Every structure is written in structure tokens, then in C-alpha cells.
Amino acid sequence: MQLDAADRKILASLQADGRMTIQALSEEIGLSPSPCLRRVRLMEDGGVIKGYVAVVDQKAVGLPVSVFISIKLERQKDEELDRFGAAIRSWPEVLECYLMTGQRDFLLRVVCADLAAYETFLREKLTRIDNVSSIESSFALAQVKYTNVLPIGP
């Protein structure tokens, strides 16, 4: 989907406030409400806008620990990579998972309440996946920056 300047303005505004009304959005970007709504719907239907969520503070809900986990598999065949991905998709502790280049095969971002909860996750889930040869965990001491706003630009 080709995005023009108006589409990019819409996306920038919705990233700042996903709850804004079409009226407010149209006023902010300088389009009338009907064409503004049509553009939003086209971007939703085209998969540019994937959904709308509330951004929740992980500490406020009792999940202050962030762990970045590097995973190395014994074999990197397609079916093995797919099997690992399928295993972790249903685990709510895993917020992000990336297939990587370099020394490790996957990088995960996991949140949990404390070290005991992480140990349970590690022992009862992660170490039970076949084909995992190594697991390296790094605990975040502080969050220096977090955003889910993409730098779309004009």
C-alpha cells in the first residue's frame, strides 16, 4: 500500500492518540471527516493499522522484571525453527520473539513478577522445548527508552 503525506499524518496522529475521534483526527490533519475515515479504513483493511491497544505499565500490573533471552538451537532446519516459534507463541510471558542472524537463533523479551516466576518459566516451559542447545538470560536493570511509535515521517 502506497502511503501519501496525509496517510502519514493520520498514522502519526493515531500513534500519539489511538482513541481520538475521526472529527478530531480530521481537524488535526486538515481533511474533512469522510475522506479521513475512508483513509483510516483503507489502512486498517490493508494491514497498515493492525489494531488499537491500551499501553499498560508493566510495573503497575505487577510485572516489573524484563528478561532478554538468547536461544541457540541444535539444528536450524525450517521445521525446527517453526516448532520453536509455535511453542512460544502461546506463552503470555513472551512479549516479543525474533528470529536472529549471528550467534543466536532467537531473541525473546519476557516479563515476569520476580526471579522465582522467571525460574518457573525457564524450568517449566523454555527448557522443555526440544532442540534448544543453549539459553542465555540478561535482566534489564532499567528501561532507558520505550516506544511503540514508528518514525513514519512526512
Rank of each mutant, 00 (worst) to 15 (best):
V111Y: 08
Y98N: 13
F106W: 11
E124G: 11
L95Q: 10
E80W: 06
R104C: 12
C97G: 14
S90T: 13
R83I: 01
L108S: 07
C112H: 02
E79Q: 04
Q103T: 12
D105E: 01
P92V: 02
E93P: 10
L122R: 15
Q76D: 04
T120H: 08
T127A: 14
Y98K: 09
D78A: 14
E93V: 11
C97M: 06
C112K: 04
L95V: 11
Y118V: 02
E119Y: 11
E79V: 00
L107A: 06
F121C: 05
R109H: 09
W91M: 05
R104L: 03
L107C: 01
E96P: 08
A86S: 15
L115V: 07
K77Y: 01
K77N: 01
C112Q: 01
L81S: 07
A87R: 09
E124A: 06
R89Y: 01
V110F: 05
E79P: 02
L122Q: 14
T127P: 05
E80L: 08
T127E: 09
E74H: 00
F121S: 02
I88Q: 00
G85I: 00
Q76M: 12
Y98H: 15
R109E: 14
R75M: 01
L107S: 06
A113F: 04
E119V: 07
W91K: 11
W91Q: 14
K125W: 03
V94Q: 06
Q103D: 09
S90L: 12
D78Y: 10
A87L: 04
D105I: 04
A87W: 02
E80D: 09
C112I: 13
L81T: 07
E124W: 05
D105F: 00
L126A: 01
V110M: 00
T101Y: 15
R123A: 13
A87V: 08
M100P: 11
A113E: 12
L126C: 05
R89I: 03
Y118C: 04
E74M: 10
Y98A: 15
T120C: 10
R109K: 12
L99R: 11
D114R: 06
L99P: 02
L108Y: 09
F84N: 00
R123G: 13
S90G: 13
C97S: 08
M100F: 15
T101E: 05
R109L: 14
A86V: 07
Y98W: 12
D78R: 14
D82L: 13
L126T: 05
G102I: 00
C112T: 04
A117G: 03
W91R: 02
E124S: 15
Q76G: 00
F106A: 03
